[in-house]
Nucleic acid binder design. Structure first.
Lengths: 278, 278
DNA sequence: AGTATTTTTGAAAAAAATTTTCATTGACAT
DNA sequence: ATGTCAATGAAAATTTTTTTCAAAAATACT
């Protein structure tokens, strides 16, 4: 799938009615676009030349020509606007999942607050102790974050047991950091744990999907993810990848900013782990 | 090399002096051609618009626009993955991470075996019991897979303790399925656990990064990921996302193929989980 | 609900790019 | 040296693209 077509999907909801008609036509006939002039496309998509140019600019391109070239670059006939259905092979599902992941990352790029991201990295670097809370679908994210930050030399522990979360939160103080992960931002136990952490003076970070939710109230730093609406939105399949991408970014960032001593410690971790391999 | 460029080579000897200049310029800078107008190219190649049009027609194309599109078609410029450096803001790191993820998914799409993927889905649907093994960086992937398959109504349990893995593997029989996750494919404990599982008659699936590795020997079905080489390749940051995408695909696929009864059970799971939210 | 404000839109004008025309050049054969 | 013919580029003609602007639609605000 070509990036421009995906980008169209990402920006679809921000478009006006006529722009959507253009988007629909292009996504339906990506191959038929190439020989068309802007006037012909305006006719076919029942819009106007001006709107097509605006459409191209919205995608970050200079104009219609660039749009055409951009779509020509890497053309595939796959329909991208379709939900998974029972006729799909598993590979086709994989392609759709990949598209959704891409959209989710792009959408997250748009909603995430750059300052918050930098603040989060700084908080992680400075914290004496880090606890990470996730439940259900977010438990594996918390585990992943814990693993990464620990491996980078931070004193980080993930908790996916709501009792342990309360215990851990209660033992925090103002040199510490609590990270809560919840797709909906409404998971009672996570919100409660962050609240306790905050009451104890710890700094709190929330990783949650964009929107108003209870978790925001108890978080000093909020890192929003965003994801396309699909039939599996409840599960937050895609926002989870965005959350992991955020964690990877924080990890890469903090590894980059560790001092020489810490870096050699990290390297010795990697050496030690070699013995676990054939 | 794309067809049009080859065609230019083929017809080169038949061309006039100015046409050769155009051919030379295009062959020297095929990427730089795309943003140029015919006038600009005329200047750069020290020829004229008219000659460029003739040049395009000689290649069997209708004109300059078609020439440009034709060269764009197969000239897919590779995505450059720049390494993270200390000057990057955390947001810039996020952009690079996103880009790497995108590359990784595309690469995985290329190396993954479609049949294996379908077989894996089928195996999951048919298994009486599923155990999932992951350690270290892959523990969270195993946890995620376990959570998803369990939520979809499969009898799946993830293990991230190498003793428990051996125990679980030992108790399997030929109606069961073991899934081993290891980026390198060389993690001793995971390989050993899969070996035991297989010896007990269970079907085995490996999720691992593309390449020859010990895990392949003990796996009935191998699902390869692939990821760009970056400074964090050891950690497998990106192949992990590809692995998760594979799991999401399998999950979506199996949910799609569950019968009505199972689907209503899944829905009642979602309802029950609502009570955990504010 | 009714009004103000903003956003979206397409027709037409303006600009730019492309294609065609045509006179000139220069290579080559005689 | 000169006629023939393909090759070439300047300029005209045409087509395409972009911008402008006023009307329409959507949205927010009483």
């Amino acid at each position: 799938m070509n990036r421009t077509l995906l980008q169209i999907k990402v920006l679809y909801k921000d478009m006006g009615k006529s722009e959507k008609k253009i988007a629909d036509w292009i996504m339906d006939h990506p191959d038929a676009l190439l020989p068309l002039s802007i006037t012909e496309l305006a006719e076919k998509s029942d819009s106007s030349e001006a709107t097509i140019v605006r459409f191209a600019k919205r995608l970050g391109l200079s104009g219609y020509q660039e749009l055409k070239i951009s779509i020509a670059q890497e053309n595939s006939k796959k329909v991208i606007n379709q939900d998974v259905n029972v006729k799909d092979s598993c590979f086709e599902v994989f392609e759709k999942v990949s598209n959704d992941i891409y959209c989710s990352l792009e959408m997250t790029k748009k909603v995430i607050d750059k300052d918050m991201l930098d603040q989060a990295a700084k908080a992680i670097l400075e914290a004496r102790q880090i606890v990470i809370f996730g439940l259900g679908n977010s438990a594996s994210i918390a585990l992943d974050a814990g693993h990464k930050f620990f491996r980078a030399g931070c004193n980080a522990v993930p908790y996916s047991d709501n009792h342990m979360q309360v215990i851990a939160a209660s033992h925090l103080s103002d040199t510490d950091l609590a990270i809560g992960i919840s797709h909906s931002g409404s998971s009672k136990d996570i919100v409660d744990a962050l609240k306790i952490a905050k009451e104890n003076g710890a700094k709190t970070i929330a990783i949650t999907n964009y929107g108003k939710s209870p978790i925001v109230k108890h978080s000093d730093i909020v890192l929003f993810t965003s994801s396309p609406e699909t039939q599996y939105t409840i599960l937050g399949l895609n926002s989870r990848i965005a959350a992991l991408a955020i964690i990877d970014s924080l990890y890469s960032y903090i590894v980059c900013h560790k001092d020489a001593e810490a870096l050699s410690a990290i390297q010795s971790v990697e050496r030690s782990l070699q013995s676990k391999k054939y």
